[in-house]
């Protein structure tokens, strides 16, 4: 079985977000980049499948040269080879188009349920639609028997048991697998694993990021004594007007 794991290269979850260039660019100084946490779950499940049934894993990232340390980390965790589509990931349609271009010969295409930078949460659905194969997300459990795939998918207030067939796209989230930390041997071997760079397929952009904005700062917290919870109820009613 051939598995493609698509990873995003995103600011670490503790990053403070700020913008430069008239609010048109992310301030990247001091920002640490990671494999998207949901993509990390996808990769971890792929490694488990590789260990249990001998699959091969290719990781794919759409990004400029600066994403290579993130790609090498995925190789260290257990992917066999990597592809970098050499372009800035401008929007979901662009990324999905590039993934679909590369994904044609894979049985299983895994990625996170969403990237934590632009949070669109739709690349898996778009890739499935472009390729004409099923897509399921967010997947919390995924098992394969021959070409049959059974999955547990989270829905509002519960979950669904879903069955489909390979080839398939799955958007992953916990607890599909435990995040894996690369070991020394993985890190050493990652340096020499193949990383292929391909040029993107050009498409017309039909959504354009014009500028960014930060939310209005929050006003200071009002502390209330633990002996006076009645005051809290009153304030929630008359001041905040939320009760």
């Amino acid at each position: 079985m051939k598995i493609l794991v698509c990873i995003s290269h995103v600011p670490d979850t503790t990053s403070k977000i700020a913008f430069t260039d008239n609010n048109t660019k992310l301030e990247t100084s001091g920002v640490q980049y990671i494999i998207g946490p949901y993509d990390d779950y996808a990769l971890a499940r792929a490694v488990e499948l590789k260990e249990s049934s001998g699959a091969s894993i290719t990781v794919l990232n759409v990004g400029l040269a600066e994403t290579e340390p993130t790609i090498r980390k995925a190789l260290a965790i257990g992917a066999d080879e990597a592809i970098r589509v050499n372009a800035f990931p401008t929007d979901s349609l662009f990324v999905a188009t590039q993934i679909a271009e590369q994904a044609k010969n894979y049985d299983l295409i895994l990625m996170g349920r969403e990237s934590i930078d632009f949070n669109s949460g739709v690349v898996h659905a778009m890739v499935g639609e472009i390729l004409g194969i099923p897509s399921v997300s967010p997947v919390m459990k995924l098992d394969i028997d021959g070409t049959k795939v059974t999955m547990t998918k989270e829905i509002e207030g519960g979950k669904e048991q879903v069955e489909s067939n390979l080839p398939l796209v799955a958007g992953c989230q916990e607890p599909i697998a435990e995040w894996k930390i690369p070991n020394m041997r993985g890190i050493m071997s990652a340096r020499t694993k193949p990383l292929k760079i391909v040029e993107p397929k050009g498409i017309e952009a039909i959504s354009i990021n014009k500028k960014f904005e930060l939310p209005a700062p929050k006003s200071a917290v009002k502390m209330i004594s633990a002996d006076n919870v009645v005051e809290l109820v009153t304030r929630l009613k008359t001041e905040a007007k939320v009760l």
């Binding site: 600011p11 977000i17 500028k211 960014f212 904005e213 939310p215």
Partner: peptide, 17 residues
């Protein structure tokens, strides 16, 4: 206007289609 960075910021996106 859409929410990005998990609620830490917003983006203004022009839809040209």
């Amino acid at each position: 206007k859409r929410s990005i960075y998990t609620g830490k910021a917003f983006a203004f996106v022009e839809l040209t289609g």
